[in-house]
Design a protein around this nucleic acid. Structure first.
Lengths: 196, 196
DNA sequence: TATCGACTAAAATACGTATTTAGTCTATTT
DNA sequence: AAATAGACTAAATACGTATTTTAGTCGATA
């Protein structure tokens, strides 16, 4: 039964989540995950191809949770400015939370080429599309001056890049742009730049 | 004589520069640098504290050269828009050149925490200040709407972050925003956002 | 089909040794 | 004294091998 399958899968993910938060990826063995989820180690391979796939599942789960929370916060707002502010503030807040929860994992992956590339590839497209939607909403709503599809595409990329790098700063060290005042300033510049 | 000192120092730097470009940091030994600059290995330590200081000197030299070229290109332009465009395009072009020259060094350091941190710290302040100058010029010149010191500071940070991340994309893989059209688009958004 | 225990192969770790290389110290030259 | 070099030391790297750990497989079984 696929439903039961999914339940066990997510119980394994939950177990791994706990262990990764406590001990990081490297010090968490498949044996550990097996014990925590009360299965034999070999059983884990019935549900997941390998350890990396389990980690990916944990990461995807967290990212999906963030995305859902951000989406909800954005949908509540009724204008472009509100939506954009909700997007940025909610996303940063949720990322911050996870960075604290996964501090060991963070130190294992921030400077790991493989993970960084995978991380970027998996989520960039989805996030760019989401930002595109917000901008298109603003244009349709006559809040923003008319923009060509190409302009919107470029703009979405730029906004994503800008926020990704703010997140990176947040990852590497708590440098600047972590307070709401500065986010407001950033949004202000953006808004009056593309306003009708 | 300090003048002669500087000459020998820069001849050592020049030698190291060549070797780093050919073989990278790790495969270039102090012995190699000594031979190339026709000194005994121990003599190098009369001029530099250690190998890292030699590498730093090479990096600083390259960065200063870029900064000078960018500064010159910017000073030629007579308005904010031109200065800003000159800044971005020249900086990216010069960085690209160096990335090709130092491709081995690049692969040794892109994912090295220590170097990345040092790199950021050394040059961020200077570059932020330079961007600040350009913005202040635009305000004084009545091209930009009046901005508070705090707004200018934040704005400079944001612009630097945005361009640093574009450079990073350029480092990691040639993704997007490497053609002039997109840079124009970015500058356009920025400009009409802070225009008077 | 879902689970497990036993198994294997591969990877990580440990360790002793040899070699290379960074960095120091002292003597000597200019 | 300022600058250089050669001899020296200590630290890092490389290497071979033995040992252990851990990821991942397989066949049995309920």
């Amino acid at each position: 039964m696929t439903n039961k399958d999914e339940k066990i899968k997510s119980s394994i993910i939950k177990a791994a989540e706990n262990l990764f938060q406590k001990y990081g990826i490297n010090k968490t063995t498949m044996e550990d995950i097996a014990k925590e989820s009360r299965k034999a180690k070999s059983t884990l391979y019935y549900y997941f191809k390998n350890k990396e796939e389990i980690f990916d599942a944990v990461l995807i789960k967290e990212m999906n949770e963030i995305f859902q929370i951000v989406k909800d916060a954005v949908s509540v707002e009724k204008d472009f400015e509100g939506k954009m502010r909700a997007y940025v503030i909610t996303d940063l807040r949720e990322i911050k939370k996870r960075v604290n929860l996964y501090s060991i994992v963070k130190s294992e992956i921030v400077y790991d080429e493989h993970f960084i590339k995978k991380f970027r590839e998996s989520f960039d497209t989805r996030d760019v599309n989401f930002i595109t939607e917000i901008i298109e909403y603003g244009v349709k709503n006559q809040e923003l001056r008319p923009l060509t599809d190409d302009e919107i595409k470029t703009l979405s990329h730029i906004i994503l890049i800008a926020f990704r790098s703010i997140e990176l700063d947040l990852f590497i060290e708590h440098k600047f742009l972590n307070d709401d005042e500065k986010i407001d300033s950033l949004l202000n510049i953006l808004y009056y730049g593309i306003k009708k």
